[in-house]
Design a protein around this nucleic acid. Structure first.
Lengths: 233, 233
DNA sequence: CGAAGCCTTGATGCGCCTCAACGTACGTGG
DNA sequence: CCACGTACGTTGAGGCGCATCAAGGCTTCG
């Protein structure tokens, strides 16, 4: 654990609006940790001992079914809270969190949750907005799964990733962490085969460019047309 | 608007733990309203002027897609809060709310949200637990849609409805509000045709009994087996 | 008593999963 | 640094689950 400087977090959404000296106090309670790629940060079902802030990197949140199927609930980008079981009144984590790349993570003991939210209502408000946004997001995904075809859902997923974490390159927008066909299939409820076929087709049409675990979006608006379902019919 | 007695709400989860006199104050701010069956309580996209508590009845929360498809997000039972856009930091309702039967609804102006949550932290805590539970629920549904077949999802939906709102009769557990094949298809992402076929098949095997807009679960455990995916293979 | 809404049941087709096989990039140890 | 093993990706063939299309029967209510 290293020394933490307030400047690290002062511009991060969940902490916006909190006084400098209070931030210092908050940070003094936190533990900072480097997590290397593919390491598990917490596991589904495990007692929720801590909650987390991602300082740097990307984290994959994955649900596992009794018979071993995996579903990716979301990707966490730097600056986001995660593993906030306490905010939801849960005693254990509802999913696995895995580092998609090398990460830097802050963590607080779960027992501090009420202390912190009571002392810093701004933090509480910010957090509940996050939870609200995620609920929204989940509902939208349900609608998507219920009404759209695989092609649209995959297009949508790729677009969202590009918008959320995209890095502009000279070719287009690159999703800046390693992501496999399988990962995308687990985000969209399909198989890696179907994703592979779609990406191949899109690459032929010049909409995307992809290499192993890398995807670059070239013609975002055309992808958006597919996502909206106006592919042809 | 009628006079409201504290005894009406004192045992309702969101208000549990609040003093009698405080409850009286809360109620004095609320408006009570009868809503007849099929009436819309609020609409998707509409500015979130109020939040609601269902005192009696059942409310259907429905999302509508741009091209007119409907997806049922959830059914609200009496004693539950709904339309709490404020808690999620939303300016407008994300779905339609429709009375599934004649209902009694309390409503508070959205502008009171912060006042109330600040003055009654118990209420805030209870509410955020509700939101947390709904997020959980939504995530589970995503996993379900991604990994299970239609038959399992429909079995699951019927079971959940029976557990949530079931009334014991001499034949079995009756879902105690009118629900059509179409409704169930909109909960599970399928078509009314498929739901009809499934219910017919189950009725032949004695698992359920159904009439127009009525469903009685007879052999719940057998339905649970189907929901778990061990129908045969 | 008629019309509208709900339900049932068959026939048909297609989207996508499944199974299978092979190609290709990566990283690890000899 | 090259060779090999492993993980990832591609592509084809086949089949099944479920949507779609179609038509008719049954309740409920005005």
């Amino acid at each position: 654990m290293s020394l933490l400087d307030v400047s690290l977090v002062i511009d991060i959404p969940p902490f916006r609006g909190i006084e400098r000296e209070n931030l210092a106090e908050l940070l003094s309670w936190a533990r900072s940790e480097r997590v290397e790629k593919d390491r598990t940060i917490f596991s589904q079902g495990e007692e929720a001992h801590s909650f987390f802030l991602l300082l740097d990197g990307h984290v994959r949140v994955v649900k596992v079914t009794p018979d071993g199927d995996q579903v990716i609930a979301r990707y966490i980008s730097s600056g986001e809270l995660f593993g906030i079981a306490q905010a939801l009144g849960l005693g254990s984590y509802p999913a696995n969190a895995v580092a998609a790349v090398d990460c830097v993570v802050l963590s607080w003991p779960g027992s501090l949750w009420t202390t912190i939210t009571e002392k810093y209502p701004t933090f509480a408000t910010n957090t509940y907005k996050t939870v609200g946004a995620r609920l929204q997001d989940a509902q939208d995904r349900i609608v998507e799964m219920a009404t759209e075809r695989v092609e649209q859902r995959v297009a949508n997923a790729v677009l969202k990733l590009a918008n959320q974490t995209g890095k502009k390159t000279d070719e287009g927008i690159l999703i800046d962490f390693p992501i496999s066909r399988q990962d995308i299939s687990e985000m969209t409820g399909t198989t890696l085969h179907t994703v592979s076929r779609l990406l191949s087709a899109w690459e032929n049409e010049g909409l995307v460019k992809s290499r192993r675990k890398k995807i670059t979006v070239i013609e975002g608006h055309k992808l958006a047309v597919i996502a909206a379902g106006n592919s042809d019919k």
